[in-house]
Amino acid sequence: MDQERADQNFTASAVVESGRVVVTIGGEVDMSTAGAMFEAATREGTAAATLDLRNVTFFDSAAIHALLRLAERFGEGLTVLASPQVRRVLEISGLSTQPWLRG
């Protein structure tokens, strides 16, 4: 499933394979798009999620909140692939050692 929001700086696409949703996010994740990121990752019938944030250029506190909600939902089934910008925000917020963070 592909979704493009009115925000030209945000893209989200999701594919479900064998109970895992793989979500690719691009652009800016902020308070106007964090909900769409969360929705893209919470597909019915999925027990695990990979969130590919390697093309994210901006990540704010609303994005962190959505990410933490996904970590609560999926637990050990969550994998997050981070861009340098996302990694830096997670380092500043004290989340860089989370087991779900990769790359």
Rank of each mutant, 00 (worst) to 15 (best):
A6R: 09
A6P: 08
D7M: 05
D7T: 04
D7G: 03
Q8C: 07
N9R: 13
T11A: 14
S13R: 12
A14S: 12
A14T: 04
S18H: 10
S18P: 07
S18L: 11
R20E: 15
V21G: 02
V22I: 12
V22E: 11
V23W: 00
V23H: 03
V23E: 03
T24Q: 06
I25C: 05
G26C: 07
E28C: 05
V29C: 11
D30C: 07
D30P: 06
S32T: 14
A34V: 11
G35M: 04
F38W: 12
E39T: 13
A40C: 08
E44P: 09
T46V: 15
A47L: 10
A47D: 13
A48E: 08
T50A: 12
L53H: 01
R54G: 13
V56P: 04
V56F: 00
T57Y: 03
F58M: 03
F59H: 01
D60Q: 06
I64L: 10
A66S: 05
R69N: 13
R69Y: 05
R69C: 13
L70W: 01
A71P: 09
A71R: 01
E72Y: 06
F74T: 01
F74G: 02
G77H: 03
G77E: 02
L78V: 12
V80Y: 01
A82T: 14
A82S: 15
S83L: 12
V86H: 02
R87G: 08
R88L: 13
V89T: 11
L90D: 02
L90M: 14
L90N: 02
I92N: 05
G94W: 12
